[in-house]
């Protein structure tokens, strides 16, 4: 680490990531991630760690690390998958890893958990380059938000969006729909309702995803600085920059505020 020559080589790479990722460092993951299946709990959509059985997957800037838990609970590094720079979020859905980065959506098969196989990497140049993107997956559709901040994150003439991919062929995801957002963060769904945090709109925007390719906003829940959501049965947690709020989503078209804590 004290090798300054080495550092100088590294800095431009970080700067590159800075320009593309820059202001998008706001991190904050839910639907039903892997970990929920063993009663472990659930994360929001914005996370760099995911547990899958005896394995822990962690994102570094340009690699997906695979750890295996030893008897004392310590993860031991057993594999790494090198990628381009700018990895941001990871979720696991049906033996498949979905990684959101500032430039791409990566899909990897973990039928053999110790040896993830890269199935595809979207090239967002033709739709949206840059951005910050948590991902949730429901059946054959992946929903991802792309946060574009002019001059900092993504290209200037683009807008932030919710993107919908058909991932029935994981080796070739197809962009099938989307919707403009202001400054979107985390997202999650219950049945055919998708909840997307939009910091720019100071709201959680509620979408009907019965027909994912034509997702349409049906309502918005006002909340300042929403970051991420976790949906747990009929209860939804929305985290904000300074706290969190609970909602009853039994009837998604009529979301009820339950309680909150903020500072």
């Amino acid at each position: 680490m004290s090798n300054l020559v080495n550092m100088k080589k590294i800095i431009p790479f970080f700067l590159f990531v800075a320009v593309l990722a820059g202001a998008c460092e706001k991190q904050g993951e839910t639907f039903i991630p892997n970990s929920a299946q063993n009663g472990n709990g659930q994360s929001g959509s914005i996370t760099r760690f995911a547990v899958y059985g005896e394995y822990l997957y962690a994102l570094d800037q340009n690699q997906i690390q695979v750890y295996k838990f030893n008897a004392s609970g310590t993860p031991v590094l057993v594999n790494k998958v090198e990628t381009q720079w700018g990895l941001e979020t990871i979720i696991i859905y049906e033996e498949t890893i979905y990684v959101g980065s500032t430039t791409s959506l990566y899909i990897l098969d973990i039928t053999n958990p110790e040896n993830p196989i890269l199935l595809s990497q979207t090239d967002r140049e033709t739709d949206l380059a840059g951005g910050c993107d948590p991902v949730v997956v429901k059946g054959i559709y992946a929903f991802s938000t792309i946060k574009i901040i002019p001059n900092v994150c993504g290209l200037v003439n683009q807008t932030s969006r919710l993107l919908v991919y058909d991932v029935s062929d994981k080796t070739a995801p197809v962009l099938v729909g989307g919707h403009d957002m202001m400054m979107p963060n985390g997202l999650g769904y219950k049945d055919n309702t998708l909840f997307v945090c939009d910091e720019g709109a100071a709201a959680v925007v509620v979408f009907d995803i019965t027909d994912p390719a034509n997702c349409t906003p049906i309502s918005a829940i006002d909340i300042t600085d929403p970051v991420d959501v976790i949906i747990n049965g009929n209860r939804m947690v929305v985290s904000t920059k300074t706290g969190f709020s609970f909602y009853d989503v039994t009837n998604p078209s009529q979301v009820l505020s339950m309680g909150s804590l903020s500072f």
Binding site: Q27, G28, Q42, S239, T240, K241, T242, F244, F263
Partner: peptide
Amino acid sequence: QPVTNSGPIFLRDPYLFMVEK
């Protein structure tokens, strides 16, 4: 302590965990 700059969250009943960056 107060939440001033939150990060990732994790729900495991009866607890909610939240990063303070």
